[in-house]
Computed example of a mutant assay.
Amino acid sequence: MSDRIQKIVMRLPDLKSVTKVWDTAERRLGQGDVAFVADLGIALTDRYGSSAAQIWQYRSVFDRLLRLLTTTSGQEHVEQTLRLVSAASPGNGKLVRYTASLLADGQTPQDLTFVFAGGSSRAAASEELRACLVHELVLRGVTVAESPQIEAWATSPHRRHHPLAWLPLELLAIEETPPLPSYSVGGGSYSMPYGPQDGPGVTLGRVTRLPQVTDTTTEKFSEAAAAAVANWAEESNGHSEAGRYDLTEPVETEALPDLLVTLGLQCLNGVGPRKRLALSSCRPEQAWRMLFAAASTGGAYNNGDYGAYGRLAAWRSLAALSGASTAAPVSEVERNAQACDWYSFGAATKWFDRVAWDIGLVSVAPGARRISVLAATDTD
């Protein structure tokens, strides 16, 4: 450990601001000393990374160092990223997923190819990082088949039991252009294709004859349907509810609003003349986009599951809501979803926080004798 790094490590807990540490790392990187950035991160991790409650200075500096390496293009920066993350990530799945997202956004596929061929003499990637990186690249439109090394690793038999192996190695039509974050050294940005529904409310009570309903919701269904928003509840202030209902006869489009308010959903409790229900038709592509954004970027106080596992969670939710099995191929789930009619909804009830993180989705199965509902909300 160099004297400069040792001084930073020892003085870190007493710093009121870490800006000078950021500047030192950025200056050394600009001078071509890429290893210094990783060495500093590793030294800080050795000293503070295992603390039960990591000091804020460590968290801030470590994230800055990781972003410096991943957002500066070049294989050497990737190699030093792998060194840093290998030292810091034992048992830290979130860090691995985050790193894969950063690398896919900040590096070219060509500079990442060696990651799948055993790394380099200086660093090697974990199998989990590779698995996440494959799907982060797929989400960004990279054709895996055009890179023999990536394809060979991604299609090898030993991967078939990994959770992400269920996902295809190319974007499906329903995924279109996924809403992905854009990273910089100082932060990032992403879109939120959901939110409070403030459109005109629908008029209730016009349909007097509704089909009889049987609630067929199971715990397994609820868990799968809410997979995309589970992180809102587990890591932030969110909550969700999901339901599946069989109907004695097909429900007409104009009867759907009245039917929804009879289901006993907590999210629609109190809907009436003063708390109106907003309901609008949407494409299955829009439904997937909402689910993916919720899963990958998280709610008010968390960062979600990032791209690879966010994609997995979105497809699990879409499978449940469209009536497909989560054991079926994703291509079959896509066909099921495309065959359903989809609607987004919201209401000015106490259940919805109506800040930014509101989702309401309804799928109507072919034949219109089964509907599935997912609602989720979160607040800062």
Rank of each mutant, 00 (worst) to 15 (best):
R97K: 10
R97Y: 00
R97M: 10
R97W: 00
Y98I: 00
Y98P: 00
Y98S: 00
T99Q: 12
A100N: 06
S101W: 05
L102G: 04
L103V: 04
L103F: 02
A104Y: 11
A104D: 10
A104G: 14
A104I: 12
A104K: 11
D105G: 10
D105V: 09
G106S: 02
G106I: 03
Q107D: 03
P109N: 06
P109R: 05
Q110Y: 04
Q110I: 09
Q110P: 00
L112V: 14
T113D: 12
T113A: 15
T113K: 08
F114T: 08
F114R: 09
V115D: 13
V115C: 15
V115E: 14
F116L: 01
F116N: 05
F116C: 00
F116I: 00
F116K: 03
F116Q: 02
A117N: 15
A117S: 15
G118R: 13
G118H: 15
G119P: 03
G119N: 04
S121I: 12
S121K: 14
R122H: 08
R122K: 12
R122C: 04
A123H: 01
A123I: 05
A123W: 01
A123Q: 03
A124G: 07
A124R: 09
A124S: 12
A125H: 06
A125D: 06
A125G: 06
A125C: 08
S126W: 11
E128G: 13
E128V: 11
E128H: 13
L129N: 10
L129C: 13
R130Q: 14
R130F: 09
A131C: 05
A131G: 01
A131Y: 01
C132W: 03
C132V: 06
L133R: 04
L133P: 05
H135A: 03
E136W: 01
E136H: 09
E136Y: 05
V138Q: 10
V138S: 10
V138K: 10
V138Y: 09
V138T: 11
L139C: 08
L139T: 02
L139A: 15
L139S: 09
L139K: 02
R140F: 04
G141W: 10
G141L: 10
G141T: 10
V142N: 08
V142F: 09
V142I: 15
T143P: 01
T143S: 13
T143E: 14
V144Y: 02
V144R: 01
V144F: 03
V144L: 06
E146T: 07
S147H: 15
S147P: 07
S147I: 14
P148H: 08
P148A: 08
Q149G: 08
I150N: 01
I150H: 03
I150Y: 01
I150R: 00
I150A: 02
E151L: 02
E151T: 00
E151H: 04
E151A: 06
A152R: 10
A152K: 07
W153Y: 14
W153Q: 01
W153S: 05
A154P: 04
A154Q: 05
T155Y: 06
S156K: 14
S156Q: 15
S156I: 11
S156A: 15
S156W: 14
P157G: 04
H158C: 00
H158E: 09
R159M: 07
R159S: 05
R159E: 03
R159N: 13
R160K: 13
H161C: 09
H162N: 05
H162C: 05
P163H: 07
L164E: 13
A165G: 07
A165P: 04
A165I: 06
W166F: 04
W166E: 09
W166Y: 05
